[in-house]
Simulated scan of single mutants.
Amino acid sequence: MCGRFAVTLPPDAMAQLFQAVPGNDLPDVPNYNICPTNRVHVVVSDDSRRLTAMRWGFLPHWYKAENDGPLLINARAETIAEKPAFRAAVRERRCLIPVTGFYEWTKDAEGNRLPWYIHAAEGAPLAFAGIWQMWGHDDPVATCAIVTTAANQPMSAIHHRMPVILSPGDWPLWLGEAGHGAAPLMRAAPDELLAWHRVDRAVNSNRASGAELIAPNGEGAGGHL
């Protein structure tokens, strides 16, 4: 799964990277502790690509309120085409979610949650595969979820799931610009793509902020997934 992530790339740099027109009301960056229900940057494509903001937490059309059911921040690649909440979106409303890195947790012998920061080994931004949907009638809200898949072998040492990470060559197909047949893109990233390090437990709080959240804390620092 993916439950927290960081974005440090400025909106104009994001827009240039994805060749997208930026919206006027994008979330503030940098943000080193993006949590579920926060507004996040999302790239969508209709006649052209747009960089826009959406609520992280997909809301099915039958929810009468934002808390009317489970918080759907992730969608499993293995079942996304079958789940009533997601099946129309994965066919018709796919998006890219730019991130700088994301967090996962392991536990020590005493059961304490130990956070890890996971990022591209070469330092480049990552593009998560996402789906989106408008929710509500009077004041519609754009909502999204991150597509996840079984972890690759190195990542499985930290968590058994990981986000679907798309390379630039796959972006047009995922966004629907290059025809149909995006299902094969919902796979684990290459083993060599990611690196990781332990970070301070301060990030365990969803109220924590600041660049120090992604700084190595010296425990288990370094390595490649």
Rank of each mutant, 00 (worst) to 15 (best):
R4D: 02
T8L: 07
L9M: 13
P10W: 11
A13E: 11
A13D: 15
A13M: 14
M14N: 05
L17P: 02
L17R: 13
F18K: 03
P22A: 12
L26K: 10
L26N: 03
D28T: 09
D28Q: 10
V29Y: 14
P30T: 01
N31T: 08
N31S: 12
N33E: 05
I34G: 00
P36R: 07
V40E: 00
V40Q: 05
V40P: 00
V40A: 02
H41N: 10
V42Q: 11
V42C: 15
D46G: 03
R49H: 02
R50Q: 14
L51C: 07
T52P: 07
T52V: 15
T52F: 11
G57R: 06
F58I: 06
P60G: 04
Y63F: 15
A65N: 08
G69Y: 08
P70L: 10
P70D: 11
P70Q: 13
L71F: 03
L72G: 00
N74H: 12
N74M: 02
A75M: 10
R76N: 14
E78R: 05
T79P: 00
T79W: 04
E82C: 15
E82F: 15
K83R: 15
A85L: 08
A85R: 06
R91V: 11
E92I: 04
E92D: 11
R94S: 05
R94C: 03
R94N: 04
V99E: 02
T100D: 03
T100H: 10
D108A: 02
P115W: 09
P115Q: 14
W116I: 06
H119C: 10
A120F: 13
A120S: 12
E122G: 06
G123D: 07
G123F: 13
P125Y: 14
L126Y: 10
L126F: 09
A129P: 12
G130H: 02
Q133R: 13
Q133G: 15
M134L: 12
M134P: 04
G136H: 12
G136A: 06
D138L: 08
P140E: 08
V141T: 14
T143E: 00
A145N: 08
I146S: 11
A150M: 03
A151F: 07
Q153D: 12
M155Q: 10
S156W: 08
I158S: 07
I158M: 12
L166K: 01
G169E: 09
L173G: 09
W174L: 01
L175Y: 00
G176S: 01
E177C: 10
A178L: 03
G179W: 11
A183F: 11
M186D: 02
P190L: 03
D191F: 06
D191V: 11
L194G: 13
A195S: 15
A195D: 12
A195F: 14
W196T: 13
H197S: 04
R198P: 10
V199W: 12
V199Y: 06
D200L: 04
D200M: 12
A202S: 06
V203F: 11
N204D: 08
N204W: 01
R207C: 01
R207Y: 12
R207F: 09
S209Y: 06
E212A: 15
L213E: 05
L213F: 06
I214S: 05
A215N: 05
G218T: 11
G218M: 14
G220F: 14
H224P: 01
H224E: 05
H224C: 15
